[in-house]
Amino acid sequence: MTATTTAAERIDHLDLLESHAIFIIREVAAECERPVLLFSGGKDSAVLLHLAVKAFAPSKLPFPIMHVDTGHNFDEVIAFRDSVIESLGERLIVAKVQDSIDAGRVVDPGPDGMRNRLQTVTLLDAITENRFDAAFGGARRDEDKARAKERVLSFRNSFGEWDPRRQRPELWQLYQGKVSGGEHLRCFPLSDWTELDIWQYIEREGIELPSIYYAHTRDVIQRDGMLLSLSDWVKPRPGEVSKNETVRFRTVGDATCTGAVLSGADTIDQIIVETASSRISERGATRADDRFSETAMEDRKREGYF
């Protein structure tokens, strides 16, 4: 066994981020009655799940895993989700936006409409139905200016709303997770991680990801300044021409609003170099849903978005 440390060895930046995240996960699991871990199959939730498994090894997770499924998925991501959950032998709850549409809770935006914002209703309904009082998410503060303002344990009232003007004080590492009936917390153990930290950690730990994070060829169209992958929900509109390009995804979300980036990076090392030298932010390069207004993320978060 070579994992034994000696006094001469040092802890690095990733070790501290890792331990801090594990500390938060254990603290919430201990203080809350019914936590759930939100898992989208993206890189951040893959890291989050990896950390949760470490936090409770050799035991099983003391909470279930939930995927909020917009129905507009990349096949590779669903295949990855199912194989990860199966190999861990953990519980997966799938909350489907389609069910919310069928139940008349939200209006179907149409065959090529974006379902990203609809997820909020599905998520909040699932939280209420399962009486979850805490939901772990993989959000990071470096993603967006509203997220940069959010606490690690972020309080949601009984309507699921975030009030950025009335956040709980959160001093030292005293994470305080008590809520009353109907309220819940969103817990962000990766708050202090950057996109680069995530990739360096994925490399160090050998964490598996959906193949679409690595360079591959794919038919895409240019729309709203983004490269969207052709699929059942994204078809060329008049005037749009599809092209076969070598691309990869920097983020994974609803397939109708998650763009690919032109990239030949097909190994982690190449992705790390690409990430370190990128001049465009992760969400700026890939997310149409943040482009509607100056405070799109804040507005969605106030309603109860991730």
């Binding site: 066994m1 994992a3 034994t4 440390t5 000696t6 006094a7 802890i11 070790d15 501290l16 890792e18 331990s19 801090h20 594990i22 500390f23 254990r26 470490k54 936090a55």
Partner: peptide, 14 residues
């Protein structure tokens, strides 16, 4: 430790 068994647990590690 998060990296496996160890003889020593350094400050700041879970």
């Amino acid at each position: 430790t998060p990296a496996g068994p160890a003889e020593e647990a350094l400050v700041g590690l879970s």
